[in-house]
Structures are given as C-alpha cells and as structure tokens.
Design a binder for these strands. Structure first.
Lengths: 153, 153
DNA sequence: GAAAACTAATCTGTCGAACAGACTATATGT
DNA sequence: ACATATAGTCTGTTCGACAGATTAGTTTTC
C-alpha cells in the first residue's frame, strides 16, 4: 500500500505541477531545481544534484538551460574554483514566486479530500519521514527537525 | 516540500523494494503488478494497468514475462471475449508471500525514524489522500474509505 | 614541492523504456 | 447492417538516463 500510495500521489502531483510549471524549462524537474536553489540554497551544483537525486551529468544540461533563460547563474566558488555556486537571478525569483503560487494551489487541490488538520499532519509526517530516509543527509538535521516536530505537537 | 518528500520517499522505497524483489522479473514494477493482482484482484488487464498508472502497451510485455515465468495467467473473460482476467498461479502466490515479507521489513526500515503510532497515521493518511487523488477511480470507494477512516479515529 | 590521489563539473556515446499509432478482435448502440 | 467504441497486441521512434572518459582544480603524502 505504501508504494502504491506514494506512486499515485507523486504521479498526480507531477501532472498538476507540470501544468503549473508551464513557464519553466524542463517542467516538474525544472520547478524542483529552481525551487531548491531559491528555498534551500544548496552550496554547490553537486549538492543540489544530491538533494534532488539527479545525476550530475543531467544537472549540467538542466542548468545550461536555466542559465540560457536567465533564471539562474553559475558563479565560481571563490573558496574552491572547481565548484559552482548556483544563484537565482531576480527574474528567476519572480518567475518562481508565480509558479510557487500555482503549485500551492495545485497541492491544495491534490489533498482536497483531507480536512485541513489532517493535511498539516500528513505534510509534517511526510517531511519527517523523507528527511530520515534521505540517504547521505546529515543526521543532525533529521534529529533537529524531529525534536522541533515533537515540541510543536 | 510535498513534492520533494514524495520524491525522496518513493525513490528510497523503490531502491529497497528493488532489492526485496530480486526474485521477480522487472523489479519494483513487477512487484507492484503481482501484488496488485493478488491483493486487489482487478477485473481485467486494462483495470490493472489503470490502477498502477502503467501504459497498456507496457502492461502487455510485463504480463508476457510473468506468464512465461509461471507466476500469472491470462484467462479469457467469458463475459467479454476481448478482455483478459489476470489470475495468479499458486507459484505466483507463494513467491509473492516471500517478497511481501521482505517488503514489509524494508518499509519498516524506511520509516524507522517515525514512532509506530505516527507510522500508522501516516500510512492511513497517505492511502486516503492517494485514493482521493487517483484519477478515474470510483468516487464512491473514496467516500466509503473516508467514512471508515473517520469512524475508526 | 612534486607526485599521487581525489573531487567538481562537463562532454560523448549508448541503451532501454515510454509513448504514439496502426491493427485485430469483439462488443454495443442505432 | 453499420458505425462507433473498447481490449489487447504489435511496431517504430524518440528521448532521457547513465556509464565512462576528460578537464580543471584541490588535498595529501613522502
């Protein structure tokens, strides 16, 4: 059941977000990339790829496209000249804001069969579970989140 | 966050289940097919494909393989001779039982950062959300499930 | 302080899985 | 009876994922 639920939800989520992301290159993937860059600010291109579970060679051409569209920029990391820091342009931020709004609405619709209290609980548990299950992530982060969650509940 | 959580969890789930499904053809997909056939008994090949969100042309060769391995059989539906009812063989049931056990353990590990009470809640909410979001499914089913869930809580 | 070992990102080639579209056989509506 | 629709299969093409080599820069070690 778990696998089926996840598959169905992710598929539906993707379909709706695909639609909401029509302004962005590479659809859902593009949204995830831009969103991660803006909201999570991963330090490097490699970190970004790891967070999203995207192959580094794929990340290269995704970012090529985003740079070409003026949504993101690659800057050399002064501390390590092999690495690139990915930073959003103003245009990128503006576009993302619009898309984010549409995505939020799409997610609401997706979970519309759940009362809002249940929705909050589901989101919190999902994030917690995902953080705990994500490979390679710093365990400290997961623990900190867990503590925060317990406290607020 | 929702999209990211779902993506991460599904990816991790797939990796673990891929491992647990080493006896089956087509890995995770294979597990989902066999599991759906045995536990959900969808009436036809098309219904099975719809439930799992798999293209019908893909379903054809998945089932070819399963039939070749003696795990499933295609029988003509006496009521509609275009349709095939997919039924598991005894061997198929036995193999699935083993795989199911391994999958259950893998899922436990996947959610090991959640206390067991939270785990139950998460699974219930996920299933409810997925049932509500699944396209084309009979709305009655979703409503019935929803009622049952509220009652038991 | 040069060689060796490692890592970030890119480039190239290959392969497989997904999908569109045509086709067969059966069913249903007019 | 004829048109239209559906279940399943088959064929061909396309596109994205990944492996592997490459370039550039960093850290380690002796």
């Amino acid at each position: 059941m778990l696998g089926w639920s996840l598959t169905v939800l992710l598929r539906e989520w993707s379909a709706r977000v695909e639609d909401a992301s029509r302004d962005l290159p590479h659809g859902v993937r593009g949204y995830q990339v831009l969103s991660a860059v803006v909201h999570e600010t991963p330090p490097t291109q490699a970190a970004l790829a790891a967070r999203l579970g995207i192959d580094r060679t794929v990340m290269t051409y995704l970012l090529d496209k985003f740079e070409g569209c003026g949504l993101l920029e690659r800057r050399q990391d002064p501390a390590d000249r092999r690495a690139r820091r990915i930073v959003p342009t103003d245009h990128g931020r503006r576009v993302l804001a619009e898309v984010d709004a549409r995505v939020a609405q799409a997610e609401d619709e997706l979970l519309s069969t759940l009362p809002s209290e249940d929705r909050r609980v589901l989101l919190a548990l999902l994030e917690h579970a995902a953080s705990g299950a994500a490979p390679g992530e710093d365990r400290c982060a997961a623990v900190a989140r867990s503590a925060a969650l317990t406290q607020e509940a």
